[in-house]
Amino acid sequence: MAVEVALSALVGAAPIMLAAYGELLLERSGRVNLGVDGMMALGASVAVAAASIGSPLLGLLAGAFAGLLAALFYALPVVYLRADQIVAGLSLAFLAWGLADLTASLTVPLSPAIIVGSALHDVLLLLTLLLPLVLWAFLRFTWLGVELRAVGHDEAAARERGARVEALRMGAALFGGLMAGLAGAYMSLVLYNGKYFAGITSGWGWLAVGSVILGYWHPLGVAAASYSVGLVLSLRPYLEAFGLGPLSATAPYLVVIAALALSAVLSARLRLRPPIT
């Protein structure tokens, strides 16, 4: 029973987790992209379109690639032209939402879904579980990972040392786009049975951004945080059963805000800083 609940929560939490991993890497390089939700929507929409002419696998890949391309709208101005990252991220969110709806309006609205329990789905879940370990090892045990963290911690000092600030941030931002696109594709192809509709992400991209902070920028922490957020989301039907009605839909967001406030207080009290690994 407990395993079942945990697993079903994982199915629901996977898109938040995937998107959060991408954002995590970018934030460790010292930049934040607020366009995650938009890139997810675009990924969802493009995945449906691609899956309808090919296979679910093609849909996933196309969605991820669409997210990567969308991330360029953020990364090029921010990394190379030093544009404001907040404005660039928010603009990207709105732009990508628009593009997602546009793509959907041009194509067939329904495509083959990825069935929970299918081999492809299992691979996706495995990826969701293993990626934080890979990221952790990358940041902790490779010099490239150390270089990326150095850029995030002290850009000027790292640059003086010869670190490739722009290349690393570009890479991290594109990886973030890739993961957000994949997360969106997962939403439309797995959670909504191959359907796309406007507002499909229902703000989960923002939950991913929040999870990065909540997980204290540690890959395993972010995995735990985003999974927990997903778990709260999966409890929604039960909350509704309790008669909380509309409030149940806002519960995850309230939980995130409360958890953020709590973690801010705790980290200040314990003098915690973003972890070293």
Binding site: A150, A157, R273
Partner: peptide, 8 residues
């Protein structure tokens, strides 16, 4: 000396 804080 600019050792990078956050690294060991």
């Amino acid at each position: 000396p600019q050792l990078i804080e956050g690294l060991t």
